[in-house]
C-alpha cells in the first residue's frame, strides 16, 4: 500500500508538471482548439450550397444496367451492406445488383433523385426488375466529416503530444535527469499518458460542443458511447506515440516516424472521404489502422444510433492497440 501511494505521488507530480507545461504553452494550447474549429467552419462554408446535381448509383454485383452509360450518372461499387447504408443516408441515389438475369434495385423513399433514377431504369432496362427500399434522411457532408475531423485532431494531438515531447525530453537530457531520481519508467509513462489523455479528451469535447452550437450536425446516438470511443481512440494513439518515442533519440527521426504513421491514417481512415470506391486491398489495409476503427465506430454512433453491440469489434481492436502499445513502451523504454 505504501509502495502504491509513493508511486501514485510521483506519477501525479509528473502529471501536474506536464499539465502546467502544456497549459502555459499558450500557442500550442490555442492551436489544438482553434485548428479543428477552423477546419469545420471552412468545410461548412464550402459545402453549404445545394448538393451537386449528379446521380450516383452504387453497383453491388453482376452486369450493370445500361443507364449507367448516361452522362450525369456516376457509378461506384460497394458491398450490399455498405451500399444500402449509403442509400439510407442519401450518399448514393440508387443501389443495383444483378443476379440470374434479374436486376435488383433499391431506392430511398425520401430521395427525389432516387425516384427519377427509378423511372429512367424502368424505361431503359429490358431485364426483369425487382424493387427494394432503404429509407432515411440525407446526411450532409458536414455531418459525415465532423467525426473525421475530431478523430484527426485527436490523432495529431496524441501522437505528437506524446511521441515528439518524449523524444525532446530525451534529446535535451531531461530524461537522464529523471533517471537519477526514484521515478520509475512506468510512473513516468503513466503520467505522460494521463496528461495527454486529459488534454485530448478535453479538446475533443470542447470542439464537439463548440461546433455543434453553430453547425447543428447530426448526433443521434449515445454521448456516453461516443465518449468511450474517444477514450479508447485517444489511448490507442497515445500508446502508439509512446511506442515510437520509447527509444528514438532524434527529433527529426521521430518527426519522420510520426508522419509515416499519421499520413496513411489521414488518407485511408476515411477522415475526409469514403473509401467505398477504392480497391478492396486498400479497404483491407485501412482496417489495420486504429483511426479507421475510431471513425467507423464514431460515425455508426453519431449517424446511425449504433449501440455497444454494433461497434464492439472496433472497440476490441482499439483496446488491443492500447495494451500492445503500452506493453511495448514499458518494455522498450530507455531514459
Amino acid at each position: 500500500m505504501k509502495t502504491f501511494k509513493r508511486s501514485l505521488r510521483r506519477t501525479l507530480a509528473v502529471l501536474h508538471a506536464r499539465n502546467l507545461e502544456y497549459l502555459r504553452d499558450r500557442a500550442s494550447f490555442g492551436w489544438n482548439l482553434v485548428f479543428p474549429i477552423l477546419i469545420v467552419l471552412a468545410l461548412a462554408v464550402v459545402f453549404s450550397g445545394p448538393p451537386r446535381a449528379l446521380f450516383t448509383v452504387t453497383v453491388v454485383e453482376g452486369q450493370a444496367p445500361d443507364m449507367l452509360a448516361f452522362p450525369g450518372i456516376e457509378a461506384v461499387t460497394a458491398s450490399e451492406d455498405k451500399a444500402l447504408a449509403r442509400l439510407s443516408r442519401q450518399q448514393t441515389d440508387m443501389v443495383v445488383s444483378e443476379s440470374g438475369g434479374t436486376v435488383f434495385y433499391w431506392v430511398n423513399g425520401n430521395s427525389p433523385s432516387g425516384a427519377i433514377l427509378e423511372l429512367i431504369l424502368k424505361y431503359t432496362e429490358s431485364r426483369p426488375l425487382e424493387r427494394g427500399q432503404s429509407d432515411g434522411e440525407a446526411i450532409r457532408y458536414v455531418d459525415w466529416v465532423v467525426p473525421g475531423i475530431l478523430g484527426m485532431n485527436m490523432m495529431y494531438s496524441a501522437l505528437w503530444g506524446v511521441g515528439y515531447v518524449v523524444v525532446r525530453y530525451r534529446q535535451s537530457g531531461y530524461l537522464r535527469r529523471l533517471k537519477a531520481t526514484p521515478l520509475s519508467k512506468f510512473e513516468f509513462l503513466s503520467a505522460q499518458v494521463l496528461s495527454r489523455l486529459m488534454v485530448t479528451l478535453t479538446a475533443s469535447a470542447l470542439v464537439f460542443v463548440g461546433t455543434h452550437l453553430f453547425l447543428d450536425y447530426k448526433m443521434v446516438g449515445s454521448v456516453a458511447l461516443l465518449g468511450l470511443i474517444a477514450l479508447l481512440g485517444g489511448l490507442s494513439m497515445i500508446t502508439l506515440g509512446l511506442a515510437i518515442a520509447c527509444r528514438t533519440e532524434s527529433k527529426e527521426f521521430a518527426d519522420g516516424l510520426l508522419n509515416a504513421i499519421t499520413f496513411p491514417m489521414l488518407l485511408l481512415s476515411e477522415v475526409w472521404f469514403s473509401l467505398d470506391a477504392s480497391p478492396e486491398w486498400v479497404q483491407a489495409f485501412a482496417q489495420l489502422l486504429p483511426l479507421t476503427h475510431v471513425l467507423e465506430a464514431a460515425r455508426a454512433v453519431m449517424l446511425d444510433n449504433a449501440g455497444l453491440g454494433d461497434i464492439w469489434l472496433h472497440l476490441a481492436v482499439l483496446i488491443g492497440v492500447c495494451v500492445a502499445g503500452m506493453a511495448a513502451s514499458v518494455k522498450l523504454f530507455r531514459w
Binding site: 508538471a17 506536464r18 502546467l20 504553452d25 531531461y174 537519477a180
Partner: peptide, 25 residues
C-alpha cells in the same frame, strides 16, 4: 546528481521544479 548539461521542462519555474522533484522522495 548535478549533470554537466541538464535541461528542465519548458514553461516551469524554479518553484515548480522544486515541487516536482520533492515529490519523488
Amino acid at each position: 546528481i548535478q549533470f554537466q548539461a541538464t535541461a528542465l521542462q519548458d514553461f516551469l519555474s524554479p518553484y515548480d521544479n522544486l515541487r516536482l522533484f520533492s515529490k519523488f522522495y
